[in-house]
Design a protein around this nucleic acid. Structure first.
Lengths: 207, 207
DNA sequence: GTCTATAACAAGATAGAC
DNA sequence: GTCTATCTTGTTATAGAC
């Protein structure tokens, strides 16, 4: 779909296959897309998939492993982290970051492998970083609830398609999102605000 | 899987097929389960599926349409609605309400039909009821964000499997959830609490 | 020698004929 | 209700172009 069918370039074919797989898996899920589909999208033959990725499962693994780097979310000021997370989920410039990979994993969550990867990425990445900001008691629970909100926002926008959320920009969502995150991370229902100088800026992500 | 293989009862066969389909579609998604699978679970032949439901798609439609009644969520006091929603998503008695249907729809969301049904159920049911409680400006956006939180909680528990949320009971989650809902529904970031006697108890669900 | 396409295989799917 | 035709799937072996 990118070039005339003849393209004798190992790297380019590999990349085209991977990109096509990311799009297909994200929009249709693992089972609904055949290796012939992604090969056709990439403009090459299906046999190439096995030559470069070993199997369909290998292709899926390669297409879904580069989830949005959790390291990028950990650096920077701690108080601004929720905002960074929000912009990662609802990009302003229209540039999707890891939305496709997340969708691919979710739509393929009937498979244990996809579920395991989703679990790892979520727990070790997002939730661990958020737990640094949460207060006791229930630090982990608080962090996971913020993660749930982010996950829900992403899903509402991409698959459920609720009108207001799908049309809203990050700037419009941010005030509400911030208030909710503050309520979830702070003391139980006391309406604690983020401007309290707690400064938990140690970013060790201690598991 | 329920009875000896011979059972000449139209209604019982129909019900057994439907129940098996709900479980299978929820745990594996539309594409991963074959009509043979659900027929075997129901203890009948695969051809019966086509006799009773017309096609595989018809079976899926029948298995996913009875989402948790949105009417049950609309009656009762308006302030208690978030709590009712939470208990619908994380049941105390271990009895999943509409979780299976939600999972089935999500795992099959690569198909436009499943996505459309998900959209309808979400928008016309949950979000419409929640919008009654939200303040301006951004009433719809506020309601959809609460819906996103609920959706995310359900997903974290069932597919992602984040530890704290999966192990928590509704009673443990409720204080945090309530604080977040209050923040989302109330005025922008002013930390408005639910105990304000706004009393929007008109339950007309005027679409 | 390396990259790509053709062709064929076994297994399993849906669906319709009996 | 059973059986079976037809199609699609993932995958491999083989042959062809650069």
């Amino acid at each position: 779909m990118t070039d005339p069918p003849r393209r004798r370039d190992r790297a380019a074919t590999h990349a085209a296959l991977l990109e096509a797989a990311q799009r297909r898996f994200a929009s249709e899920g693992y089972d609904a897309v055949s290796v012939r589909d992604v090969a056709a999208d990439a403009g090459v033959d299906a046999a190439l998939v096995f030559r470069y990725f070993g199997s369909k499962a290998g292709l899926f693994r390669a297409a879904t492993s580069p989830l949005p780097a959790p390291a990028d979310l950990a650096d920077g000021s701690a108080e601004a982290l929720p905002g960074r997370l929000l912009r990662a989920v609802v990009p302003d410039a229209g540039q999707p970051v890891g939305e496709e990979q997340l969708l691919a994993l979710l739509r393929s969550s009937g498979h244990a492998e996809a579920r395991a990867q989703l679990h790892r990425q979520m727990c070790d990445g997002y939730v661990a970083a958020l737990a640094e900001l949460a207060e006791e008691p229930g630090r982990d629970l608080r962090a996971e609830l913020v993660g749930a909100l982010l996950l829900g926002i992403s899903l509402q926008r991409s698959v459920v398609g609720t009108p207001a959320l799908a049309a809203a920009s990050a700037a419009e969502i941010e005030p509400l999102f911030d208030a909710a995150v503050t309520a979830l991370l702070g003391s139980t229902g006391h309406g604690k605000r983020a401007d309290s100088p707690d400064s938990p800026e140690n970013q060790g992500a201690g598991q």
